[in-house]
Design a protein around this nucleic acid. Structure first.
Lengths: 250, 250
DNA sequence: CGGGAAGTTGAAGAGCGTCAAAAGTAGTGG
DNA sequence: CCACTACTTTTGACGCTCTTCAACTTCCCG
């Protein structure tokens, strides 16, 4: 659910070494960012035994709102969007997900949202019941999960402020800054952001239309706050200006 | 965070019998709705030993965004609003809270939102560290907490759809239906809703202005979907019409 | 009663959405 | 390498919903 940065290109190697003798979790680039970091080395085998690795190309729907919540997912590489639809086709993207993010934490019987890959993706897929049993046996992992859920809750509240009370310009500026911050947390430079989602996706995430998002990008470019290198690479030229435009609290 | 119904008037007796010999949790009207329901009777003493009861009148701010997250709260009666502010004074209410709801689940060092009572309130106040220690000792309670957090996350996503993609009329209709449903879950009739919050609060929750909320109420009344008995009591006359107006998924 | 807050209603305007078309970009195949 | 197509993005003109500003009404508590 956390906002995030486009196309996570792992500095280490790819998520799975399928068929390797060593536990794949040990070499998983996403491990340190996810719940797995709370799992002791000797428990990793039980974790990896429960999981099925899965590879997806871009644009694949791998989770459908309303379906039985049979599985729990952990993204190991790539990015995805999570969304909900209204009857007449309006769409709200509730989050973009990246390596380390979790998905399917539905304690309801059915998923309450759909998810679709944006890029090539790899993920760990756990049968839900089995995952819940593992949680009971690994209190540290459960605590980590609770901590991640509470962070997501805080992010969701921040997003409510954006959707309920910010102007188009503030929304786009906040969005870019969030992506930049996420990039920094994962060791990238904070002044360049690569977008793995379309303008329509951004619009559906920010509660705007494609046209307004596009116009707002243009406006920020004309102000000298950002520069666009193609449609998908954004250089932050004037961070202070962007932060003023975002009207972020704190 | 869950939407909810105005002025929780407990069908049993008030939350605390201060100074009683028996454990106050045993007579707590909020127990069955909260995490405490996952605590064995013999553990209730440890729980109640950690808590300080607190009483508030209406309009008291008991939690401030940015303050040290020193305590964790459990509402035992009454209602409150949780909100975030933007620098220029704009406000987004991220939720209305009622008996059984939790507050202060910040795994950050500081609160990320403020909270203010709407009515007379009682709450249980736990020092955060101590509460975390109790959680470690009571895995069932921790699991219950995780389940509540994931429900809140689903509710937050639903609210994002409302804020990002619904019209004023759809927002107000959804809001009223949510209150009505919450009322039903707590044994009240689903066709009358008592509002414990002002029009301004509703507006700040729905991402609108007071005027628009007021006009929308009037519109729904003129359609015959609702009737207003004073400003704070809403009778749902035509539930189907209201559900159509809400454009809820599913 | 009376005064202040909360709610309602009205008129005008702004910001964003809608509709339409042009420009840019990527993939495909001759 | 270029042409062709399909899609995404950008830009423009216009309209609508909701906001803003203002006045009036209702409610409530002393």
């Amino acid at each position: 659910m956390s906002l995030a940065l486009a196309s996570y290109e792992t500095p280490r190697r790819a998520a799975f070494s399928v068929g390797a003798k060593t536990n794949p979790c040990l070499t998983c680039a996403a491990r340190r960012m996810s719940i797995c970091s709370a799992v002791e080395a000797q428990d990793l085998d039980r974790l990896s035994a429960a999981t099925t690795p899965q590879r997806l190309g871009p644009g694949e729907t791998f989770l459908n709102e309303g379906d039985d919540a049979s599985h729990f997912f952990n993204i190991t590489s790539g990015s995805a969007k999570v969304y909900k639809l209204l009857p007449n086709g309006r769409r709200q993207i509730t989050g973009f997900l990246f390596a380390g993010d979790l998905l399917g934490l539905a304690f309801n019987e059915t998923y309450t949202y759909s998810a679709e890959s944006l890029t090539d993706m790899t993920l760990c897929r756990f049968p839900r019941r089995q995952f819940e049993r593992l949680l009971e046996q690994m209190p540290k992992m459960e605590r980590r999960l609770l901590s991640m859920a509470s962070h997501e809750l805080a992010a969701a509240q921040e997003q409510m402020v954006l959707l309920g009370r910010k102007t188009a310009r503030e929304r786009v500026a906040s969005f870019l800054l969030n992506l930049a911050r996420r990039g920094e947390r994962f060791g990238r430079l904070g002044d360049t952001v690569t977008l793995s989602m379309t303008r329509t996706d951004i619009a559906d995430y920010l509660g705007l239309t494609t046209e307004t998002v596009s116009r707002t990008f243009t406006g920020l470019r004309n102000d000298g706050s950002i520069a666009l290198d193609g449609a998908n690479v954004v250089h932050i030229l004037d961070r202070d200006a962007l932060e003023d435009a975002a009207e972020t609290a704190e």
